[in-house]
């Protein structure tokens, strides 16, 4: 029921001003995105260091986000876990967690960059290099690529043999100083340090040497096969 004209002054269009002001503020903040994101990441990291409640995780822009392409975050009995190294190899391997832990260890400390934009600084991963497992299994000359399978039953990833032999490509069982937890892809996951997170298959169950490169789960959904941080997927993040 509108107020009859002349009965009351029309009044200032404050609603429109608030509305346009908010839209303008939002647009300005989007435009300032890069620097703003860096500031928020630092604030979040500082706050998290002095925050027993974990509420600082609510600050936009910081920390891990957990993705699963299936209905849950799969987990496995540590004693029952086996990692198979199979396909075009001389002697297929089936490694328990103890077998993996007993092999020569490698640690990498790198920023973890997701293709959706978030980045976690200086993440410490430990495990064994993928190269050492491939060498232990004895690759056949016909093997040109590596396929990774997850025990979530859906996720796959792949690397060329050349990429797979890099020293910063790990089969990791340790994040920070603890076992890799289920939400982080434990007990054992891939860490392809110079590439975007989707290249690092979580809940790793099989490393399969294959004759031809097979696109993985996200590559079949349009992501780049060579997922180098900073030069792929239309992004220009600082390399990790």
């Amino acid at each position: 029921m509108e107020i009859p004209p002349g009965d009351q002054p029309l009044g200032a269009p404050v609603g429109r001003r608030v509305f346009l002001g908010l839209v303008g503020l939002g647009a300005a903040a989007v435009a300032a995105g890069g620097p703003l994101s860096a500031v928020l990441s630092r604030v979040q990291a500082k706050a998290a260091a002095h925050d027993p409640t974990g509420l600082s995780g609510l600050i936009p822009g910081g920390g891990w986000r957990y993705y699963s392409v299936t209905g849950d975050f799969p987990s496995v009995e540590p004693a029952a876990y086996r990692l198979r190294v199979a396909g075009l190899v001389d002697k297929p391997l089936s490694l328990s967690l103890a077998d993996i832990a007993a092999r020569p260890r490698t640690t990498v400390v790198r920023d973890f960059q997701c293709v959706t934009g978030w980045r976690v600084p200086k993440v410490r991963w430990s495990g064994v290099t993928l190269a050492s497992l491939i060498e232990a299994a004895g690759p056949l000359p016909s093997a040109t690529a590596v396929l990774f399978r997850s025990f979530d039953g859906a996720y796959t990833e792949s690397l060329t043999m050349k990429q797979a032999m890099r020293s910063d490509v790990l089969v990791a069982d340790t994040l920070g100083h603890a076992a890799v937890s289920s939400e982080h892809g434990g007990p054992v996951r891939m860490v392809v340090a110079p590439m975007y997170g989707y290249k690092s298959c979580k809940w790793l169950s099989e490393i399969r040497l294959v004759p031809r490169l097979v696109p993985g789960f996200w590559e079949q959904n349009g992501y780049d096969q060579d997922g180098w941080v900073g030069t792929s997927n239309g992004r220009s993040d600082a390399p990790t």
Partner: peptide, 23 residues
């Protein structure tokens, strides 16, 4: 993001603004 050919800065900005506005 790719269809609109957005540079990283704007993608980050959109992420943060979307999150902060939600809160």
């Amino acid at each position: 993001p790719t269809q609109l050919a957005l540079p990283d800065g704007l993608r980050q900005g959109a992420t943060i603004v979307h999150d902060a506005t939600t809160l």
